[in-house]
């Protein structure tokens, strides 16, 4: 097997007395969708924040495409090809919807010490920026103010920004949370279609989505990765059912709701 695109070894992070992640080992394969599931407060967002460089781990290593990126700042990781979407929508409110994805494209198109040509007339930016909006179904809102979008549309824009940069690895933190059923279904199709070109680390609470998409699943509880494997293995894992899905009745399996 090829070396995984992203590896973590013994990743730990504590906030004061709370251990948010503890000794997490993770392998995300090239072209795979790797889901991370776990109850609220399990440390999933903290994990992503460490991968993206917004939080420095207390110990452990992060390797991306064969390179140790543990100490690299956020923007340098992004330029290597790691894009992140936020659980709590993080967009440019004072700008138009198209400007939001345009900036995502611009970030990956060389440096931005360009002082003269109008960015909004640059097809190398507007083309892919518009395409990303179309992909998530926001094309018709391109000219609107980002602040004026509905909550569900904000979530779509959040994804579009992660897509627009042509990154190799997407870290998606509950991308469907807050979307309507229709958009959610659209996202599932969209994410599945991305597997050709991208690898995805997906955090998601909706088990239907997880089992529909994931090639591998890691289960986190109290900061620890208690199990990792193929969806069938996770579904059958006793530890997982006890620790994470204690509420499930006997005989019932995760994910076939």
């Amino acid at each position: 097997m090829n070396a995984p695109l992203l590896e973590t070894r013994g990743l730990s992070k504590a906030f004061g007395g709370i251990t948010a992640t503890e000794g997490v080992d993770l392998d995300v394969g090239e072209g795979k969708i790797h889901a991370v599931i776990g109850p609220n407060g399990a440390g999933k967002t903290t994990l992503i924040a460490q991968l993206a460089g917004m939080l420095a781990p207390d110990s452990g290593r992060i390797i991306f495409a064969g390179r140790d990126i543990t100490r690299l700042p956020t923007h340098a990781r992004a330029r290597l090809g790691i894009a992140r979407s936020f659980q709590i929508t993080s967009i440019f409110h004072a700008m138009s919807v198209l400007d939001n994805t345009l900036l995502a494209v611009q970030a990956h198109d060389g440096h931005s010490y360009r002082f003269w040509r109008r960015a909004r007339r640059d097809k190398r930016l507007t083309g892919p920026a518009m395409a990303a909006l179309e992909q998530v179904g926001l094309g018709h809102k391109a000219a609107s103010n980002a602040s004026g979008l509905s909550h569900g549309e904000h979530r779509q824009l959040e994804i579009a920004m992660a897509l627009a940069g042509a990154s190799k690895l997407l870290l998606l933190d509950e991308p469907m949370a807050g979307m309507g059923a229709e958009e959610s279904a659209r996202m599932v199709v969209l994410l599945r279609g991305l597997k050709e070109t991208k690898s995805i680390l997906l955090i998601e609470h909706d088990m239907d989505v997880v089992f529909a998409l994931a090639d591998r699943i890691t289960v986190m509880v109290d900061g620890k990765a208690i199990a990792s494997g193929k969806p069938e293995q996770i579904r059958a894992d006793e530890n997982v059912r006890r620790a994470y899905l204690g509420m499930e009745g006997p005989g019932e399996t995760i994910g076939d709701a």
Binding site: T74, H75, A76, S90, I91, F92, H93, A94, A107, M161
Partner: peptide
């Protein structure tokens, strides 16, 4: 100015 954290996560050394 609008969202520094987001800019960094897109890849800008703000």
């Amino acid at each position: 100015k609008d969202n520094d954290q987001r800019m960094q996560s897109l890849g800008f050394d703000t």
